[in-house]
Amino acid sequence: MGNRTFLSVTEGAADGQYGDVAFETNNFLALLWFSFVSQEQYQRYRERLTSTWNAVKPSLENEELEDSPEWEAFAEALNWHIPWGEAAAQLRQSLPVALARFPGLGPYMSEWLETLFTHVQSHQAPVVHLELAQFFNFYTDPLQYLEQIEDCLHFWWRPDELWFERRNEKMNSYLLGGEHLPKGERNGEDRNNEEPTVAPGIEETRIAHSPSAKKRSSKRLEGLYLWLLAILSAALCLGTLLLTSSQWLAVLAFLLPAICIVLRELLIRPKKTPSTKKERPVPSPATSKIAYYDGTSPIKVEGIEAVNVDKTGGYTVPWHHILRAQVSLPNQVALVLHAEYESLYPSPAIVVLDDKLTADSVASAANSIAKLSRL
């Protein structure tokens, strides 16, 4: 089953249910989740974790440790609860800095935010929960665990080229953000079947509907059929013996149901023809290199740098003025502005890129930050 982590969004401080889980990972921390976390939030988290662990340490040898209130307090301290207002404010600071240096992260971030927004927009006062308690099972000391957290935070606070090099410079959507569980994809039947448990109950729900569970049910039916066959055979054998007093006929009567089943399999059931179609292998997650950009990026914290159509008169367009960014040429992105801001800039507003930047990645990064600024 692994040690799972969950990113949930709820109304206020309510406990997360199945339908509140936006992302899930198994045995790793998702980098994109930590774009919510400011240095002040992390400092409070570290202090809370350290103080609750100090309360646990004297009882570490106790066999009933996990039932103690001290351990429950520590397990709760492992989870993070961030009001959306604080999370969004930190995203607005961290996204431009990271995407300016790693523009190839833009498409992944855009996809991840789309899923996140399906959850955030369904609440009046959303709170983001990072449920990380199971991940601590890999460690015996909070300091080792916190090192992994700090490694993720380092990318958002001080992005550098070595960060991705230590990870073989390859990432994919799942490793970066976890399994996506958009709010809108859960239909009414799914919601009716949800159990009122916290998010880690997802695993139990999946197991109940897994192929292995169906296989166990099939085996129980086979066992029932065997018992019925044995009862029928025994009844025929005993009845024949009482009526005829012939042991040979009794044995034949005992075997008659089994003989009929064998004849049906051989003569009545149509034979399967061997398929010439080869089974497709399970596709592995696509990987791609996210290169570090060491030039002057048009992506800034406050907005994106643009020029006139004749590539003169540079200016910065704030993120909340941008409706969307779209590729116009391989090295050029055109900005579509909200109607109330169009008169403030020459039309069209163009972002010109150097040879190291691709228009697709910059447009995707710009759209992610612009949409975030409107929430």
Rank of each mutant, 00 (worst) to 15 (best):
G314R: 13
L60P: 01
Y18D: 11
D294M: 15
R216P: 15
L228F: 06
E70D: 05
I322W: 03
D354E: 01
A87K: 02
K214T: 14
S217N: 13
Y293V: 00
D190Q: 14
D160I: 05
A125L: 07
A125K: 09
L372P: 05
L162K: 06
L228S: 07
A370W: 00
Y42L: 04
G313P: 00
L176Q: 00
Y341Q: 10
A87C: 01
F36G: 09
A253K: 05
T118W: 07
I350A: 02
F28N: 14
L65D: 01
E165Q: 10
G188N: 06
E342W: 00
K219I: 08
P281H: 10
E76A: 15
L224F: 12
D354W: 00
R206A: 12
G106Q: 00
P83K: 15
L323V: 08
P348E: 06
A291G: 12
E222M: 06
T312K: 12
F34T: 01
G85S: 14
I261D: 11
F23V: 02
A77N: 04
N79Y: 06
P107T: 05
P346F: 15
V251C: 06
S368W: 03
L162A: 15
V37M: 08
E76Q: 08
S38H: 02
N137M: 13
L95Q: 00
A213V: 02
N192V: 07
N54C: 11
L226F: 12
I149G: 03
E24G: 01
T5M: 10
S173E: 08
W53N: 00
P58I: 03
Y18M: 09
P107F: 02
E86I: 04
N308K: 09
V336D: 10
F23H: 07
F135R: 13
G184Q: 06
L226S: 14
E40C: 02
E204G: 15
A235T: 09
Q43A: 11
L116T: 13
A98T: 12
S173A: 14
T197E: 10
H154P: 00
E305M: 06
E40K: 09
N367E: 05
G177E: 14
F254M: 10
P196Q: 08
K183R: 09
Y225Q: 07
S8D: 14
K219R: 10
L238I: 08
L249A: 09
Y293T: 00
F155K: 04
L29M: 10
F102W: 01
L252R: 01
Q332I: 09
P107G: 09
R220V: 15
E72P: 07
L335K: 05
L7R: 05
N26T: 12
S35G: 13
A366N: 02
W80Y: 01
A88D: 04
E302S: 13
V333W: 01
A75V: 04
I268D: 03
G201K: 02
L243K: 11
R191T: 02
D151E: 15
A291L: 15
Q332A: 11
V9M: 02
I149Y: 04
L375G: 05
R186I: 04
